[in-house]
Design a protein around this nucleic acid. Sequence first.
DNA 1: TATTGTTATACTCTATAACTATA
DNA 2: TATAGTTATAGAGTATAACAATA
Lengths: 156, 156
Amino acid sequence: MTGMPRKALATEAEPSEMALESLVGYNLKRAYVILQNDYRAVMGEHGLSPRVFSALTFVVETPNLTQSDLARRLGIERSGLVAIVDELEGRGYLRRVAVPQDRRVQALSPTDAGVQAYEAALTLVHAHEDRMLQTLDAGERDQLLHLLKKIRETGE
Amino acid sequence: MTGMPRKALATEAEPSEMALESLVGYNLKRAYVILQNDYRAVMGEHGLSPRVFSALTFVVETPNLTQSDLARRLGIERSGLVAIVDELEGRGYLRRVAVPQDRRVQALSPTDAGVQAYEAALTLVHAHEDRMLQTLDAGERDQLLHLLKKIRETGE
DNA sequence: TATTGTTATACTCTATAACTATA
DNA sequence: TATAGTTATAGAGTATAACAATA
């Protein structure tokens, strides 16, 4: 005998009736999970994770970046950044460079391979976002970015 | 001697120039983290976590809900739901009720205390969202919900 | 054979605390 | 004293695989 059909017990409720559906936080999380899952699928098993890609972007775009700078910009602790920088260094995408003026510090310098990997990854990310946001027109996409930045400004 | 001043090494780059700033995924994650941190602060150290609150909402609003139903609706695995239901049962907010028609199943039935806890938590969550979204007018908030739901529809 | 609830296990992400070397 | 980078450790949150009971 086959198992019970889906939803045999639970009464079907219109999603729009659910209190959760009118909460921004709940919808934000669901959308975030969907985007992240597709991101990982697009980047592949050995691709850069979201946080490593973000870190590489800062390293490529910001000259003379230190780890403490980067941690602050990413909004994480210095300790958590070590593994991220280790991975990027292990892939040959950046070097830890000694800074004579302050020997506590090591500046993060992108390699040529790191710049190329960043550009290749960015192309994949753009394709991923275009596909995930295909039901939004250009105006809606700008509006979404604008509203998300407003939330960021409130909390940062 | 005090340490180096902030940003002594890294050149300041306008955030709007960064490639990350035009990515929906990056802004979605940053906004999600901000909302989640405030949520946890509002709910308190012993408050319901986001996933437990979401689960309680489904239990209160959906009669005769089973664990498999709930896992599917939350978008997580059945195995991951056990700890969530254990916590809600431990707090006295729901009961696992045997279902005579199918003895594999235990329906999740909210207690009076569970309904009260849900309503109290929902009030806190609404206050939290009103504060975090204070810079958005009613139209912007509706638009944000609309756009997030569009992303959910694309990926579910 | 398939499904429900469950346990065991592992992996990712992140935080806190403490250490060292420098300032 | 304070900061930069690091290590050790722990806690969420989630996934996969396997199991017993039941369909």
